[in-house]
Amino acid sequence: MTLDELNRLLDPQVLALIDAHASDDPATFAMQFHGRGDLPVRAIAEQIACRKKAAAKLPSLSRFPMLYTRLGLEQASGERAAEWKASLMRGWRAIDLTGGLGIDTLFLAQRFDSVVSCERNEALARLAEANRRMMGVTNVETLIGDSEELLAGYADDSFDWVLVDPARREHGGRSAGLSASSPDVVRLHDMLLRKARRVCIKASPALEISGLETQLPTLSEVIAVSVDGECKEVLLLLYREREAGLTPEIRAVCLGSETFEIVSSGGVPPARVVAEAPGTWLYEPDTAIIKARLTGELARQFHLEFLNRTVDYLTSDRLIEPFPGRSFRIEECRPFRQKSFRKELAELEITNAAIQRRDFPLSVEELRKRYKIGESSERYLFFTKNATGSLIWLSCRKP
């Protein structure tokens, strides 16, 4: 979006037109108003498309007539994750080094007396500023420019918290590594902690979490956050008072109909207890728990056993409710033999199923193609190994 398009979108008559056509198909709107030089037709169609996506990603915020850009909405934190992330922080003043669409900033503004939002893209910065003005948020200052240069201009201890969501696109692709991010939080570690006693880095959910303390000496907490079963982000909390060389606390937070948290116990991880045979129930932990490598802690807490020594499937003879992840009743558990598998499927009248495999030689696509298994949301087939390392398959249903 250009500044000219933004200024035209802010015309009250154009905003009213967006509201009137909010339920339209964007392509249909663009065709209907094609050739209208008095209207920013492309930009209006983009707003209609973005509002539909925002309704799911930002359920309460989208009730306001906010403006968006496609990329800004794609990169923005979802509302659940943004609100929970902001709950970690409180104080007099914070700075968001990567303002973007401004979703994180909106929630920070509820917890700090004042917030500074930095954004290098002027059109996006002005769009977020217009949204805040429309929502009556008055305690945010907008700065446009390079966030590193802007932060360097502040005196030490100017903020209680720094929030940064580094861009992870590099040379047209994506990189999950911290040192490849922009701004480079590894290089800026010392400066960040001079400007504020505490720093929150929103990292990629694909980030490898082991060994991060060697890059970030004051790393105190690593938090994997999921929303409705999908790992959305990994938060890295830096505390100035943290002694270098200490192992950070690892936490998983699962945001769903209920919020579930689990924390590493410290020291030696719990031993992996493997079941001699699958029980009545199969459990797949939430993605945040798997990401944080806390499945062993979860198994200890709920008295569950692992299905095998290599993957994060758990089992027991009793149903755990509520369980932070997915639960399945095991109807069949059999050795996987390629020659007889097709016949077994026929005997059990299994023609369609959702398929999942871990530590198994055939891909989901190969299994579907080779054995002609259609899609289904009623039955689930799991392909993995048992306690002895032999290939098995399980037919399951949701409770």
Rank of each mutant, 00 (worst) to 15 (best):
L304E: 09
Q301N: 13
D317F: 12
L294W: 00
P322I: 06
G296K: 09
E321I: 07
P322R: 02
L304H: 08
V311T: 12
Y313E: 01
R300A: 14
E305Q: 15
L307V: 14
G296D: 03
S316D: 15
L304T: 06
S316M: 02
D317H: 09
E305H: 15
E297K: 01
S316V: 03
E297L: 04
L298D: 01
L304P: 10
P322A: 10
I320F: 10
N308R: 14
N308L: 03
T315G: 04
P322Q: 13
T315I: 03
D312C: 11
L314R: 08
L298C: 04
T310F: 14
F302P: 05
S316I: 06
T315Q: 00
N308C: 12
L298E: 02
F306D: 00
L319C: 14
D312A: 12
F323M: 12
T295N: 02
L314V: 15
N308T: 03
L319S: 10
E321L: 05
R309M: 13
V311G: 07
V311M: 00
A299T: 13
E305T: 09
L304K: 14
T315F: 01
L298N: 01
Y313G: 01
L294H: 00
I320M: 10
G296Y: 13
F306C: 03
T315A: 00
F323S: 11
H303G: 05
A299Q: 02
P322E: 15
N308G: 08
L314H: 02
L314F: 04
D317Q: 10
L314W: 06
L304C: 05
F306N: 02
D317R: 15
E305A: 14
L304F: 10
E321W: 05
E305K: 15
F323N: 07
E305I: 00
T310P: 10
R300E: 12
T310Q: 09
L298S: 06
E305L: 13
H303Y: 06
F302H: 07
Q301L: 08
D312F: 00
E297P: 04
F323Y: 14
I320C: 15
Y313H: 03
T295L: 13
R318P: 10
R318V: 11
G296R: 15
R309C: 00
L294K: 00
G296T: 07
N308H: 12
G296Q: 05
L314Q: 02
R318E: 12
